[in-house]
Amino acid sequence: MKKITLLLIIGLLSSNFYSQSKNFIDQPFLETEVEIDTSVTPDKIYLTIVLNEEDNRNKKSTEELERSMLMVLKSLNIDIDKNLSLLDFSSDFKKYFLSSQQVLKSKMYSLLVNDARKAGEVLAGLEKVEISNVSIAKTEYSKSEELIIELKTRAIAKAKRNAEKMLNPLNQKLGKAIFISDTNTPSITSQLQGKVAGVQIRGVSSLYGSRAQEEMMIDFEKIEFSSKVKVTFIIE
């Protein structure tokens, strides 16, 4: 008796599921896919600064270079407690043994700045104190999550407008959405180009070919965001 009851329940559930699927297939619907993209200027720029006592003409010690770096950053009103971090946390210094009698000490920092102008000021300021081993590690946009949500919303709204326009010549009315999906993972593309890891550096060099200058301009390619959605509407 229990087996018969169980089979009856399963049969009813299967019949109900089939009926719902059939109703969905039988009703007229319209499906549209939309992609929205935009580009923004990066507002988080990470610089990698390497202090090496063999990298400067006057053979300053790593400790001297570090003091000079901190002086430059403070003069540019950079919050070194918040935006400057030591990359090698296991030790204050990386030591490279060049021979049995000579040890080369190196120290690496990561610095966060918020725009290209400030990055240029840092590069120019460090160059003046003989710190030239500086590179652009990466760029980011701080409000990327909010922007992706906005792109999804705009894509769905555009999908509805497209569907309505497609039905206008047919004199039919667009019903509610019955299925919405992301057809791809929202993409974030940073296209960088130029001399330093995708960065274009512009400035007037001195007569002796030095990069040290009053102002160093850096151009960053904008970061591109895109989102694609597919929406299915009932046709009433």
Rank of each mutant, 00 (worst) to 15 (best):
F220A: 00
E63A: 13
L47K: 01
D37Y: 10
I136F: 08
K165G: 07
S227K: 15
S135V: 06
S68K: 03
N16C: 08
L65P: 02
F179G: 10
R117S: 12
E150M: 08
M216A: 11
D115V: 02
D43Q: 03
T38P: 04
Q102M: 09
K82I: 09
L76T: 01
V40H: 06
Y46F: 06
R57K: 11
N52F: 00
K82Y: 09
V134C: 09
M108A: 14
D79P: 10
Y96A: 10
L30C: 00
E127Q: 08
A119Y: 00
N114Y: 03
L192K: 13
M108P: 14
K74L: 07
D92K: 11
L70H: 06
S61R: 11
T48Q: 08
I36N: 11
N23S: 10
V199P: 00
G194W: 01
G209H: 09
Y109N: 02
E54F: 12
L87W: 13
K160P: 01
S205E: 14
S68P: 06
K118W: 05
N77M: 12
D55M: 00
L47V: 02
G209L: 03
Y18N: 10
F24K: 14
V231Q: 03
N83T: 07
L170V: 01
F97A: 11
N168V: 11
I25V: 07
D37C: 07
E33I: 14
K59Q: 06
E164W: 01
E121V: 02
K158S: 05
L8I: 15
D79M: 10
A177W: 03
L147D: 01
R161W: 04
Q172L: 03
S21V: 13
L151T: 05
V134H: 03
S91D: 14
T185N: 12
D26L: 12
E150N: 08
M216F: 03
N171A: 08
F220M: 04
